[in-house]
């Protein structure tokens, strides 16, 4: 019983991250609305951030700012990597939103099937 609880407490973060990743992946594939696709892409991204930050966590440690009286700090490396990734993620999202605005200007819709239909009509 004890070991099962330990397993759940130790791995719950990973399972939650996997659930987030799969919700994001499903949304990217299945949803027709382009804005929603981008939101789901963002959920996927956040899942990856959480995975890295979970790897950096240490029990009974404090934030990685060196100070007198503390000797155990969280791992700074994943935090630095995710700091970069968050900002880059927003840059990608901004390009995505700009693309949506352009697509809406050209097609008058941001639903994927409506856009495809219009494309086929033009080809005929």
């Amino acid at each position: 019983m004890e070991s099962v609880l330990d397993l759940v407490l130790g791995h719950f973060n990973y399972w939650a991250v996997i659930a987030l990743l799969m919700i994001g992946l499903y949304g990217i594939i299945a949803r027709q609305n382009l804005l929603k696709k981008l939101a789901c892409l963002s959920i996927f991204q956040t899942g990856v951030f959480l995975l890295f930050i979970s790897w950096g966590y240490r029990h009974d440690a404090t934030v990685p700012i060196l100070a007198e009286g503390f000797s155990r700090y969280a791992n700074p490396l994943p935090q630095v990597l995710m700091l970069t990734a968050i900002v880059v993620g927003v840059a990608t999202l901004a390009v995505g939103y700009a693309l949506i605005v352009r697509i809406h200007k050209a097609y008058g819709s941001i639903e994927e099937d409506a856009i495809l239909e219009k494309d086929q009509q033009e080809q005929e």
């Binding site: 979970s54 934030v63 700091l83 968050i86 900002v87 901004a94």
Partner: peptide
């Protein structure tokens, strides 16, 4: 999870700028 720098960035960039960009697109 002991990552205050990442939390600041996420609060400013993720919550702030991302949401504003999404609202602007809407």
């Amino acid at each position: 999870l002991d990552a205050p720098d990442v939390a600041f960035t996420e609060a400013a960039v993720g919550t702030g700028i991302s949401t504003v960009l999404m609202l602007a697109t809407l």
